[in-house]
Design a protein around this nucleic acid. Structure first.
Lengths: 184, 184
DNA sequence: TGTACATCAGTGAACGCGCGTTCACTGATGTAC
DNA sequence: TGTACATCAGTGAACGCGCGTTCACTGATGTAC
């Protein structure tokens, strides 16, 4: 995780990991079949870290379930936490999306706190609160996820990475506004 | 370009490139300062390739400038070309976004066919055609770009990569619909 | 209560590999006088 | 018209590096009888 945090998935190097732990390189093979398995576990952990931060963002919003304003703020908190994680931890963010496949962590089951699960729950609440038309609910998690993810990628490692903090904030704000417009 | 097409930015290996050309490895240093400079040029070329395909998609749409329906179809063609490129050429797509910074290719100047430039031009036409409220025009290229890019990334190398063709088509369709909703 | 044995994390040494990069060089091509 | 010289793409040989991975091993810990 230390390596991924500092340098992304490519920095997850088996020998270096054993060095950090203070152990001889081949000792790693007691715990992982090979380098790929090590990386896969780091990726999964990074994805959980992201989900945890999103869940924390949601938890910080007061207001009981079903309240329209609270439901909207919860959705906003999800997006904000996602973007914040990508900005604060670019290495972990890149790593989270480097290997694992969908079924491993994007299940709709919300109990295991996956990013997609949390988003779906928030959207369901929005329907429940009467903010989002039930007819528009199905599958709308994908464009929303894409929008936030795209913003994170373009402004992170992507072509917009050189934007100033002010520009960045404006771009992120527009992203969240656009989602609101798309839901209305 | 061959290497990037097949394996993304990491596959752009100096020695392998010289092997393909049929030349001794150090001959490369007659043309590039080092491996990074080689990669940078490949990235730029990949980005141009993307822009070219987008431009070709636009050109395929009939209807004169300012016509509302044609303007909308042109915007749709841009998004479709972007997603099509990401799907058909995942290696080049990843490479295009691996290194270059914004100012090198995302200028608003439309004459040099950059992705952002083409998108902005299409949005300007949408305003001109009376489809998009001029007040909403400023900066709206960013969420739109993010949305399409996010979809390309999540369904390409990302967690949604295992989706079936049918699911993929549905996700892409929802992406374009969401954009339309966001513009209305 | 004591002994034999299995388990298992870690050791030490070594492997082959492909990489980027440096060096002094050659030999063809074009240019100046 | 011919000769001297600069330019420059490519050569051949070598470097050090860090990587993932394999091998036979040790030594502590826990368990069965």
């Amino acid at each position: 995780m230390e390596l991924a945090r500092a340098g992304g998935p490519d920095a997850v190097v088996l020998r270096e990991a054993t060095r950090i732990v203070g152990v001889v390189p081949n000792a790693a093979y007691r715990h992982f079949a090979d380098r790929d398995e090590l990386l896969a576990e780091v990726c999964t952990a990074a994805m959980h870290e992201l989900a945890d931060r999103m869940a924390a963002g949601i938890a910080r919003v007061r207001g009981k379930r079903g309240n329209p304003a609270a439901a909207q703020r919860r959705l906003g908190a999800i997006g904000a936490a996602y973007l914040e994680f990508a900005r604060a931890e670019p290495g972990l963010f890149a790593t989270a999306f480097a290997v694992p496949r969908q079924h491993e962590y994007a299940a709709r089951d919300t109990t295991d706190r996956t990013p997609l699960g949390l988003l779906c729950a928030a959207l369901d609440e929005l329907v429940e609160a009467g903010v989002l038309d039930p007819q528009r609910r199905e599958g709308i998690e994908y464009p929303i996820w894409s929008l936030v993810h795209g913003t994170a990628v373009l402004t992170g490692r992507g072509p917009l990475r050189d934007a100033s903090d002010a520009e960045l904030r404006r771009i992120e704000a527009r992203t969240l506004t656009f989602i609101a417009a798309g839901l209305a």
